[in-house]
């Protein structure tokens, strides 16, 4: 398969302050993260708040510049693109945010909000063409009757409908890659699957690649199907591979802990839930990450080496994983 996007050894440090009079401190939001997205592929990035998944999304869309590392889009370094190439990149890589209410201007109708990017990126010449194109797209995403939705203001729509509007906005400029940052976490449960199905449809019909950013492994499993999953912890990738292989035998102790925390729909499983396989539930401060393996203070398997040496990502069982004790970690069962 062709590589659409290649993220190579990205670091992102933010300047933080430790106290009023202290010197600036570097907070590593992302440390040495690499990722490849093929054309037409769906990748899920999993992690809790503060793991850097949103920062990675912003870097990939070019909204935030990385401190170090390179990003190649269609084999071109995005930092060295010409203006035309950059515009094309900006058009082809779109983002869908978590809070659909915040992502739409409350004082503009849906049509007004959606026509501008299309005209700006010269997808259409004028308002009339924009309207025609949007009518087609609204049909496609199920925002019907089309006329009514175009006239509405964001507050008149339900969360699921607004999220559809955001997906339409991304779709309207002909993207090749959509970064969806927690697109369903604020949407009612009964509507989540319908939105995920819509994203799958966009993936199949138009070959659009997706980076699906979430903390919810169950929805990730639902949408990714044949694609990859990357698990992040405190700014680092800890396990990355084909979703099916990874979930069939999750290896990283952090991933195992995440899995055990997810509420099960199967009541027999959910009633016999064990205690979380963690020493502590509190996430360490990213400004002051633990020495050695970043997960070691919370890991129930941690040994001396984990405190001393930071594990590298190495290949094992058809995936890459960053854990010194990978061989010793017991198999996970649901």
């Amino acid at each position: 398969m062709d590589t659409l996007l290649k993220v190579k050894n990205i670091d992102k440090y933010y300047k933080g302050k430790d106290g009023l009079f202290q010197t600036n401190k570097q907070v590593g939001a992302l440390v040495d993260v690499s990722l490849e997205v093929n054309k037409g592929e769906i990748i899920a990035l999993i992690g809790e708040s503060g793991c850097g998944k949103t920062t990675l999304g912003k870097i990939v869309t070019g909204l935030v510049e990385p401190t170090a590392g390179e990003i190649f889009y269609n084999s071109k370094d995005i930092a060295k693109m010409t203006k035309t190439e950059r515009n094309q990149f900006r058009r082809e890589v779109q983002m869908v945010h978590q809070d659909s209410y915040a992502a739409l201007n409350p004082s503009r109708t849906i049509f007004d909000s959606l026509k501008d990017p299309m005209i700006r990126h010269k997808v259409v010449k004028n308002k009339i063409e924009a309207r025609k194109k949007l009518e087609e797209l609204f049909e496609l995403v199920g925002l019907t009757p089309v006329d009514q939705f175009m006239k509405k203001y964001p507050h008149q729509l339900s969360g699921g409908q607004r999220q559809r509007v955001l997906l339409t906005r991304a779709l309207s400029v002909g993207p090749k890659l959509i970064i969806a940052d927690e697109p369903v976490s604020m949407v009612d449960v009964s509507l989540r699957i319908a939105l995920l199905d819509l994203m799958s449809k966009m993936n199949k019909e138009f070959g659009i690649s997706f980076i699906y950013i979430t903390h919810d492994l169950a929805t990730a499993r639902y949408i990714v199907k044949g694609g990859k999953i990357g698990v992040m912890y405190l700014g680092k990738m800890v396990e990355l591979g084909e979703l099916e292989k990874v979930l069939e035998n999750p290896r990283h102790p952090y991933l195992q802990a995440l899995l055990s925390a997810i509420p099960a729909v199967d009541i027999e499983i959910s009633r016999k839930r064990r205690e979380l396989p963690l020493k502590s539930v509190e996430m360490p401060n990213p400004a002051n990450p633990p020495q050695g393996c970043r997960f070691n203070p919370r890991c129930i398997y941690a040994e001396d080496i984990c405190e001393k040496k930071e594990p590298e990502l190495v290949e094992s069982r058809g995936r890459v994983i960053a854990c010194h004790l990978e061989e010793k970690i017991p198999k996970w069962t649901y």
């Binding site: 995920l196 169950a218 199967d266």
Partner: peptide
Amino acid sequence: LIMATPSLTDDLNNRKAIKGNP
């Protein structure tokens, strides 16, 4: 609702959205 909740263990084809909106 139960059918629309994605899970980690079951066959994904069993999952189905509730049509329409609240």
